[in-house]
């Protein structure tokens, strides 16, 4: 599902990623771990086509992103759901409208939008907050809305960049359980985090990065 072949990325001659080769199978749940500045976010940005590698090739869902035209990137992103630490919700739009956004840009019908948004909100347990503005929600609820937006159009891959960075251990546990559920439905999940607590809770494959390089893997299967 995801393949990086000898990928390097430099910022001002400093290597954010150095010769990274990585394979993630369809339906896998992978934790991308490492301290700040280890290259986790850069790797995720490469996977959504927000950055191009300076060297190597990146494949997502069979597409070589290094050869993808910029006009094709939006269509790739429709297959890849993303969750961020800072939620990135539109503050003036209701929960429902925020979650509906990915369907809206794809030109889905009103009935389709209502059905899929309701399903996504139910899946993350915030359907009862659908008419509220994000500011009226707790941080945990805001992150759930963010997850609902990421899964509403049934992505094949879900990428999460420090999704629990703003959450307490209890909420962290809830969100990770949510990711496990999403993964159980067949979606490939990649979570970038520096939090060892997450690793303990998830108990799945861990890919470690340090100073832009892969650390030899340890596989822990549940």
């Amino acid at each position: 599902m995801i393949q990086l072949i000898h990928v390097s990325k430099f910022y001002d001659r400093r290597a954010a990623l150095a010769d990274v080769t990585l394979d993630i199978e369809k339906g896998e749940f992978v934790l991308l771990m490492g301290p700040s500045g280890s290259g986790k976010s850069t790797l995720l940005r490469l996977l959504i086509g927000a950055e191009q590698p300076d060297d190597g090739h990146v494949f997502v869902h069979g597409k070589n992103l290094t050869k993808l035209k910029s006009s094709e990137i939006p269509y790739l992103r429709r297959k890849v759901g993303t969750v961020f630490q800072d939620f990135r919700l539109l503050p003036k739009k209701s929960v429902f409208d925020n979650v509906a956004l990915p369907l809206l840009v794809q030109g889905a019908s009103g009935a389709d939008i209502r059905r899929k948004v309701t399903e996504a909100l139910r899946a993350v347990g915030v359907d009862h907050k659908r008419d509220q503005l994000p500011i009226g929600l707790s941080t945990g609820e805001q992150q759930r809305v963010c997850v609902a937006r990421a899964i509403v159009n049934g992505p094949v891959v879900l990428l999460a960049d420090e999704p629990t960075g703003n959450l307490d251990p209890e909420l962290t546990s809830e969100i990770m359980e949510l990711f496990k559920l999403i993964n159980a439905r067949g979606t490939t999940v990649v979570v970038a985090t520096h939090d060892p607590l997450v690793m303990e809770q998830v108990n799945r494959r861990v890919v470690k990065l340090a100073q832009g390089m892969l650390v030899p893997e340890q596989r822990v299967w549940a």
Partner: peptide, 8 residues
Amino acid sequence: ILRLIGAT
């Protein structure tokens, strides 16, 4: 956000 969710 729009770009992130695949808006052309």
